[in-house]
């Protein structure tokens, strides 16, 4: 049976993870200033893939990036020191948090496809009774959003 309180807790978990990435507490983490929201949203997001630049063509990208269509621009460059190929992407217009999350997930999935040939699946996985508590649903929200969040 739907429980609005538990659903709200799950939503809050996802939002919290998003907010925590940009949180800077005195004495914890970096000491520099934070980007203004416009600059932060417009930064290139990038992954380095262990393959030759010849294996990644802008006109033949992995499906997760293709799915974002013309909303994003993509550049492919050799990584220094034999570390492979850098794939970077950013939205042409200022994106929402949700759009940025989709881009992060697409970059990570593209890297997995190029390096391992498949995207790692996790569910269904064995587990015991999931107590439907606000704390538990909060964590569910965090985990559900963990592919789309982070500093990438």
């Amino acid at each position: 049976m739907p429980n609005p309180l538990l659903d709200r807790a799950a939503d809050l978990g996802g939002t919290l993870l998003n907010r925590l990435q940009g949180l800077k507490l005195p004495g914890v983490g970096t000491a520099s200033v934070s980007d203004d929201p416009e600059r932060a949203a417009r930064r290139w997001r990038a992954v380095t893939v262990l393959c030759s630049p010849a294996d990644v063509r802008v006109d033949d990208l992995p499906a997760p990036l293709v799915a974002l269509g013309s909303l994003v621009e993509v550049r492919v460059t050799p990584a220094p020191g034999d570390k492979g190929t850098e794939i970077a992407a950013r939205y042409r217009a200022t994106p929402s948090d949700e759009e940025l999350g989709r881009l992060r997930a697409a970059l990570r999935a593209s890297k997995q496809l190029l390096e391992t040939g498949e995207v790692l699946r996790m569910d269904p996985r064995p587990h015991g009774e999931r107590k439907q508590t606000p704390q538990g649903r909060l964590l569910d929200g965090v985990v559900a959003n963990a592919k789309k969040e982070g500093v990438l």
Binding site: V143, E149, V151, L152
Partner: peptide, 18 residues
């Protein structure tokens, strides 16, 4: 490993990298 943690957003937030 870059590819084996399906929840990279959590540890990137904690440690800067997953």
């Amino acid at each position: 490993c870059d590819n084996s943690n399906p929840n990279p957003g959590i540890t990137e937030g904690l440690w800067g990298q997953s």
